[in-house]
């Protein structure tokens, strides 16, 4: 639990049109070699590309219809993500349908609970947020903690400063919120929660789960750095990396979006 309260914040907001998730990256810095992480320099993507593009440090695609954000011990989280992907594929093989969101959350919690009960083993030091869609209950958001409890939410938050963020979400959340408003709300609350004043793609991960306009299948989108910076500029929450401002290129305009990726 201690590791989780120190971990980077992960936040998710539910709307009728889709679910939004935003996460604070902790492992950043000029010397970190981004080309060595899964997905390479240009992580992210939409639909099938969200698989090949890979996630980053904190947001993972568990199945075509489910994304997860993790807070806690990263190595434990990787193990849980692997288990979840296995469980989702097992369900697909047996039932020829995407696993319902609650079933996957419950499956992970059953395992997490087991590790709190049997001697000699250490529990998984991870809290997760799951966002997803299934035909049974539509868009959903769940939270699970290391003890194996899980619960459904309209908007919630885990990690550092999560109680502050939670009360901000409670103030500003409306039941008829649109997807665009949900994106803005999540990023606005995130900007108030984080230490740094300016948000940028080098400190954030961002993902959405929506429905395809024609096929009505769930579409996961992990935002690429340039896409996230563009969104942040639109919301006037930052979007240009600090280094660029110092360099004095006069950046910050829409055309300069891609340069921000480099730090």
């Amino acid at each position: 639990m201690e590791a989780i309260s120190m971990a980077g914040t992960v936040m998710a907001v539910l709307s009728k049109e889709g679910v939004v998730m935003v996460a604070e990256k902790k492992v950043t810095g000029k010397l970190l070699d981004l080309s060595l992480i899964a997905g390479g320099d240009n992580t992210g993507g939409e639909g099938i590309q969200a698989w090949t593009g890979g996630g980053g440090e904190k947001i993972f695609l568990l199945n075509n219809n489910i994304l997860a954000g993790v807070a806690g011990i990263t190595s434990d989280a990787n193990s849980l993500v692997n288990y979840a992907r296995n469980a989702a594929q097992r369900h697909l093989l047996t039932y020829d349908e995407e696993i319902p969101v609650e079933m996957l959350a419950k499956g992970l919690c059953d395992m997490k609970q087991g590790y709190t009960q049997f001697g000699g083993l250490r529990p998984f030091g991870v809290s997760l947020l799951y966002i997803g869609h299934d035909p049974l209950h539509g868009f959903q958001l769940y939270h699970s903690d290391p003890s194996g409890n899980y619960s459904g939410w309209k908007a919630t938050c885990i990690g550092a400063n999560s109680s502050n963020a939670q009360s901000l979400l409670k103030q500003d959340y409306k039941d008829d919120i649109t997807l665009e408003e949900a994106k803005a709300l999540a990023l606005k609350v995130m900007s108030k929660t984080m230490d740094s004043t300016k948000l940028g793609s080098e400190k954030l991960e961002f993902a959405t789960m929506t429905l395809h306009p024609t096929t009505h299948d769930p579409v996961a989108k992990i935002f690429r750095a340039a896409e996230l910076d563009e969104l942040l500029r639109k919301l006037e929450l930052g979007g240009t990396a600090d280094a660029e401002v110092v360099a004095g290129t006069g950046g910050g305009g829409a055309g300069d979006g891609n340069v921000a990726v480099s730090t």
Binding site: Y95, D96, E97, E102, M103, K106, L136
Partner: peptide
């Protein structure tokens, strides 16, 4: 276990 009936399509696959 899941508090929901298996629908015809996944039941047929099973």
């Amino acid at each position: 276990r899941n508090n929901t009936e298996l629908l015809p399509a996944p039941a047929s696959a099973f």
